[in-house]
């Protein structure tokens, strides 16, 4: 009888065994990644945009010093120096020589826009990254050890009330107020945004932790005798990574938009540094006379933010083992699609 049921069970499970890409080799995960990108065209677009934007930013930063080292004089991938006044005739419409035209100071708009890329992208990653680490840790603490009446419970309450206080100000207003106090400058404005940014991560993380914490699989681990610290890393953090990574990716774009707004208002980086908000500030009167200036900056912001958003959306599928299966083996029914009734 035992063998009868065993074979029955084997048959039952057999449907899910065949053609299993076992092991977690680098090659198979690359293949998987490729398949997921191919399956979802929007994710692919996002991925390409993010890669192009990031690589360009990197090249802008690293090419001059490297060429300086090797050749003795620095080269830049920018066609012309940015913010270079009177280099060319003013208000030139886009042409082959100047793909985005020239502006009211006679600078090449394309060079300006590309030169701003490292600053904006850097700020996006920096602010979102620090918020992720800081907010994520605080949220983890506040969510995981929230038993009322204990010391850690008190800490949890404190963190959350502090977060609430920060969240109760409109982001932009608070950031402006802080920059106004600290003064103008790259670091100062980054601190200002950061101060308004981390609370979102605390709230997100804590919410996720609270829900993961009550999942039956966490209770099951506890029943198996797994110590709390290991539950925290093995189950909670692991299940947190996906929502946080998705949120972070999309957030880079949001930071860039917010930061540009701040420097557009005139309290961000000094005007001598190429930055999209700064450029926008300079170009704001040209919307009718030389629209290409404004549209170039807007386009750059749009493309960057779109790229991160699309990638973030697709990341959800890439990181979730459940959707991985669908793509990895077309035609297999995923449990996610079954109604839970």
């Amino acid at each position: 009888m035992a063998s009868a049921t065993a074979s029955a069970a084997r048959a039952a499970a057999a449907g899910s065994v065949e053609e299993e890409p076992s092991g977690s080799g680098v090659r198979s995960s690359v293949v998987l990644f490729y398949r997921i990108l191919r399956a979802n065209i929007l994710t692919l677009v996002g991925f390409v945009l993010v890669v192009v934007v990031s690589v360009t930013a990197l090249l802008v930063v690293v090419v001059p010093p490297i060429t300086h080292l090797i050749l003795g004089h620095s080269l830049s991938i920018l066609p012309y120096p940015p913010l270079d006044t009177n280099a060319f005739p003013y208000y030139q419409a886009p042409s082959l020589a100047h793909p985005f035209g020239t502006d009211q100071n006679g600078a090449d708009v394309f060079s300006n826009v590309v030169a701003a890329l490292p600053t904006d992208l850097g700020i996006g990653f920096f602010v979102a990254g620090v918020s992720l680490v800081l907010g994520g840790l605080l949220g983890l603490v506040a969510g995981f050890w929230d038993t009322p009446g204990t010391l850690s419970g008190a800490a949890s309450v404190t963190i959350m009330r502090l977060t609430d206080i920060f969240l109760s100000f409109p982001t932009l207003v608070l950031a402006l107020a802080i920059t106004a106090t600290l003064g103008r400058g790259e670091i100062e404005s980054e601190i200002a945004i950061l101060a308004t940014w981390w609370p979102f991560y605390v709230r997100l993380t804590r919410g996720e932790v609270l829900s993961i914490k009550t999942q039956p699989y966490v209770i099951a681990a506890r029943a198996a005798g797994v110590p709390e610290s290991r539950i925290l890393f093995r189950h909670v953090v692991r299940n947190l990574l996906e929502p946080l990574a998705v949120y972070f990716t999309m957030d880079v774009g949001t930071v860039i938009v917010t930061y540009s707004t701040i420097s557009y208002i005139g309290v961000g980086v000094p005007a001598s540094i190429p930055e999209w908000g700064n450029l926008m500030y300079g170009y704001q009167d040209l919307l009718l006379t030389a629209p290409w200036t404004v549209w170039s900056v807007t386009g750059a912001i749009f493309v960057t933010v779109l790229g991160f958003s699309l990638l973030g959306d697709g990341l959800r599928d890439i990181l979730d083992p459940r959707s991985r299966r669908i793509v990895a083996s077309p035609g297999r029914q995923s449990s996610k699609l079954e109604p839970s009734s």
Partner: peptide
């Protein structure tokens, strides 16, 4: 009653009984 080859699978790949 599960095949030993399924070591590296994820739980959602199994039926309710699995």
């Amino acid at each position: 009653g599960l095949p030993p080859e399924c070591l590296d699978q994820y739980p959602h790949e199994f039926s309710g009984g699995g």
